[in-house]
């Protein structure tokens, strides 16, 4: 009891320190609003990347449609806030959870048939689902005019702030850490390592695959809600195949099944993208997407196992390894 209280105090202190220092830096003008927004985006991306890390890194389910779940969360949360939420912080929190819930429900419906597929076939099925969802978002205005369809969704209030993104990032890290080091986590990892062996040991592989998949997609849903209220504008192209690839690249670069690596890679990726925009001379910004693939290929050639390997930050380690 005393220890769990101490843990809680430690987490709250970490949260206050992180969010407080960023807010302070922003308020004193050390960090300009543009970079604060980039930082918020990086946190949002980190949350959804942790989701894919659970799905692909820990459970071993190859998913190429992660951005679709981001989109489901984003549109759900934005719709709820636009129709009933207004400016209320409490309702914002609820809307984010509803976005995560919607993504989880749809993940469940998709997972029921799709998780029977293995490896690359699952990848193709999720890729297909991603493209179908993009078509649905594109035509969304024909059943709910508020969603805007291919013209994009406007009229969303900017609700996402530093305290919110840091809060959800910390919560997602804690959930992943505690799940992975529980019996659920053991089961999930054993499926990744060898599904047949896991089944022989009495693990209900389908059920645990579903747990991993739904949990990861729920993270994407919450991240989507935060994303919607960060830029106050949604467009179906924010959730296309390339965005799924972005998140996949982050997870692979960070190292599959490595929370610290994925966390660092999320921030590194976003700041690299934006940093190159600043560093490259005007008129050469298109070179960004020529340099990044080269960097990607070279990284894969030199370190195919991801940048971090198997090392974790101390606060993300399991008790067994402490």
């Amino acid at each position: 009891m005393a220890e769990s209280l101490r843990n809680l105090a430690r987490i709250l202190a970490a949260y206050a320190l992180l969010a407080g220092s960023i807010v302070l830096l922003a308020a004193t003008g050390v960090v300009n609003p543009y970079w604060v927004q980039i930082l918020e985006l990086a946190c949002v991306v980190a949350i959804s990347a942790q989701g894919l890390n659970v799905i692909y890194g820990y459970t071993g389910l190859f998913s190429l449609g992660h951005a679709a779940f981001l989109g489901i969360g984003a549109y759900t949360a934005a719709y709820l806030m636009k129709t009933v939420g207004g400016q209320s912080q409490v309702l914002f929190f609820t809307a984010l959870l509803a976005g995560g819930g919607a993504a989880a429900v749809i993940a469940c419906l998709i997972g029921l048939p799709a998780l029977r597929l293995t490896s690359d076939y699952l990848g193709i099925a999720t890729l297909g689902f991603g493209i179908i969802m993009k078509v649905v978002f594109d035509n969304a205005d024909s059943f709910l005019p508020e969603l805007g369809g291919a013209r994009g969704m406007t009229g969303i209030t900017k609700m996402t702030t530093v305290p919110w993104v840091v809060f959800f990032l910390l919560v997602s890290l804690l959930i992943v850490r505690n799940t992975i080091h529980s019996s659920y986590g053991r089961a999930i990892i054993s499926i990744r390592e060898d599904e047949i062996a896991a089944e022989t040991m009495g693990i209900d592989t389908f059920r645990y695959k579903m747990v991993g998949f739904v949990m990861g997609c729920a993270f994407a849903g919450v991240a989507g809600g935060l994303y919607a209220h960060l830029y106050a504008f949604l467009h179906p192209s924010n959730f296309d195949f390339f965005k799924s690839i972005d998140i996949l690249v982050i997870v692979v670069l960070g190292g599959l099944g490595n929370m610290s690596g994925v966390l660092v890679a999320s921030f590194g990726w976003i700041f690299l993208l934006e940093g190159l925009r600043v560093v490259l001379p005007p008129g050469y910004v298109e070179l960004r997407w020529v340099l990044i693939p080269v960097l990607l290929i070279v990284t894969m050639l030199l370190r195919p196992q991801g940048l971090f390997g198997t090392r974790e930050f101390p606060f993300l380690r399991g008790r067994l390894y402490r």
């Binding site: 690249v249 997407w289 020529v290 990607l296 290929i297 894969m300 195919p304």
Partner: peptide
């Protein structure tokens, strides 16, 4: 791009393939 990764994890080749794809698209669009 692919031969050096023949014995690396499969995902490394896949990410490389995506990298090559993006490179070809954006390099030729310069």
């Amino acid at each position: 791009a692919y031969r050096p990764l023949r014995h690396a994890p499969k995902i490394a080749s896949l990410i490389t393939a995506i990298g090559v794809s993006l490179f070809l698209e954006y390099f030729t669009s310069l």
